[in-house]
């Protein structure tokens, strides 16, 4: 199963290496990682998407991450109310004739064209992973020359009212 895990870390050199290293050592399958600064200076947040089988495995991952000295907090936010965003840049083959056709396709996604050349345009889109998959599917028939995705970043919504079943990996269950 796919889980979204965030880790708040002290921005030390080597911290990324330690974390990815432990994931490799313990055979966790990372689908994506994003890292960036937070509101606190010297503190970064990582968002991982990992593929694990079973609660035991994700519990191990969280505990192992927590054990790292530079890790301040780890949460599995998969089952919380969260905002999730990913950014994708998609370079699509297109000439002048079909450019407006593509504009029409991407409009409902609130994506934008950020670069135009004679034989291609570059579309920028942000959203959750499904939305990005959807726009990619629609653009594929035109020919995708190049594509990059950032991987998701996420955090809990301001209000968690709608959530009933938040997974806790407290050892005091």
């Amino acid at each position: 199963m796919k889980r979204i895990v965030t880790a708040t870390v002290i921005n030390q050199s080597g911290v990324l290496n330690r974390i990815t290293g432990l994931m490799t050592k313990r055979q966790f399958n990372i689908e994506s990682i994003t890292v960036g600064h937070t509101e606190t200076e010297g503190v970064s947040k990582m968002t991982f998407v990992v593929n694990v089988d079973g609660d035991g495995k994700i519990e191990q991952l969280i505990k192992q991450l927590n054990k790292q000295i530079d890790v301040l907090k780890v949460s599995d936010i998969t089952d919380q109310a969260i905002v999730v965003r990913e950014l994708a840049l998609i370079k699509v083959i297109s000439n002048a004739q079909i450019r407006s056709e593509i504009s029409g396709i991407i409009e409902p996604f609130r994506a934008s064209i950020i670069d135009v050349s004679r034989e291609s345009i570059t579309v920028q889109v942000t959203g959750d992973s499904e939305k990005i998959e959807a726009i990619i599917d629609l653009l594929r028939p035109y020919g995708i020359k190049e594509m990059v995705r950032t991987g998701i970043t996420a955090f809990p919504r301001g209000s968690q009212k709608s959530v009933t079943d938040i997974k806790q990996y407290s050892i005091l269950n």
Partner: peptide, 13 residues
């Protein structure tokens, strides 16, 4: 804590 439940399911951690 990472040792608890790692290899053997544990009822009283």
């Amino acid at each position: 804590p990472a040792e608890i439940g790692k290899n053997v399911p544990t009822q009283i951690p």
